[in-house]
Computed example of a mutant assay.
Amino acid sequence: MAHRTTVYDVAERAGVSIATVSHTFRQPERVRPETRELVLAAARALGYVPSGSARGLAKGRSQALGLYAFDMFLPSDVNAPALSLDDLVRRELDGRGDARRFPLYVDEIQHGFEIEARRLGRTVMLGAGASRDSLGSIDLAGSVDGLAIFPGSAGRDLLEHVGRGVPVVIFSSPPAHDPMHHITVANEPAVRELVDHLVGHHGHRSVAFLGELAAPDIGARFRGFQAALAAHGLPVSAEPFDATAMTQDSLRPLRAAIAAGDLPRALVCATDQLALAVLDLLARHGLRVPEDVAVTGFDGIVAGRLSEPSLTTIRQPFASMGRLAVRILTDTIAGREHPRSYVLPTRLVLGGSCGCG
């Protein structure tokens, strides 16, 4: 790894004391906004993150790896009114808590990450925040020896900034010409196989894609969907049928199609979590799955296996992705070389939601 930029470099560039630099990252409320912005600009220019090893020695900690998720909370969760602990416990015990709110694929990758870290004698630090706020990810990067990231809609410049200070692994992101490691799955061929099943086995000729294309992996799944339709001689849409985001006001095009009685015969959802929301919406409108419309997902989360009907989906090797990230980070820290990109296989899992239960 290149020589790590120090607090002294940032202080010199910003024209402030090293204490001011430290307070900017540790206690930003103690620094005037204009000074704070000056320090952050210097840090961005130099690719600085606070020294994880130095802080570890100062606090008696070491051997830590980080796992950070950008933009993973739904607006309905973030903006929900605050509840007392008693109310939260009561809601959960009464079965009124929604176990599908936080993206469950994050949980499953985290499980593999933590198991492998423990096997190698490493501790794990977790972080989450909005991509527009770089301080959270920079702060965590400065507290650990290596960092794995769920990028969400975080900008490439921010990810590369973090990656200039510590080894970084990006999940669900295709290979790129950058210094970071990438772990993803074979999204396009997986969706082609799924559509081949819907068209070839079930004979569906009206098949639609639902999903927001902002994330690179979702974009790859849509390209696989388009390629499969073209191979079967079916009309290829330039945009998803419903480019929905997971918000309280999502699925408008789908709702409109239901109201107009013009629903496609099969709905290919970009994620399992979206597919589960679609199942709920269809049930509220009295539509049967798969008799009236087939629904499929992508991820293979446990909630999809427990849904009614069980979800036809593409299963990702979540635990293996988490374990691989830990091995990449620990090997890189030790000076061992690793390929920059890994594309892991997937598996088509047939369930009742397409009629194969």
Rank of each mutant, 00 (worst) to 15 (best):
R13T: 10
S17T: 12
P28A: 01
E29T: 13
E29H: 13
V31L: 08
T35W: 07
R36Y: 00
A43F: 05
G47V: 09
G47C: 08
G52N: 03
G56F: 07
A58G: 07
G60T: 08
S62K: 13
A64G: 10
G66S: 02
D71N: 13
S76C: 10
D77F: 12
D86T: 14
V89K: 14
V106L: 03
I109R: 01
E116W: 01
G129H: 05
S143I: 07
S143W: 10
D145C: 11
A154P: 10
V162Q: 05
V162F: 02
R164I: 07
I170Y: 02
A176M: 13
H181M: 11
I183W: 09
L194I: 04
H197V: 11
H202K: 11
F209M: 07
E212C: 15
I218D: 08
I218W: 06
R221H: 05
Q226F: 04
A227Y: 10
A231S: 13
A231K: 06
G233S: 06
S237A: 14
F241L: 00
T244G: 00
Q248S: 15
R252H: 12
R252Y: 02
L254W: 00
A256K: 13
A259H: 11
D262S: 15
L263H: 00
A266K: 04
A266R: 03
C269A: 10
C269D: 02
C269R: 03
A277D: 14
D280T: 15
V289D: 01
V289C: 06
G297N: 02
A303P: 11
G304W: 09
S307Q: 07
P309N: 01
L311P: 08
M321W: 03
M321P: 11
G322I: 06
R323P: 09
A334D: 15
G335D: 00
H338S: 12
V343S: 09
L350R: 03
G351L: 03
G352E: 00
G357I: 09
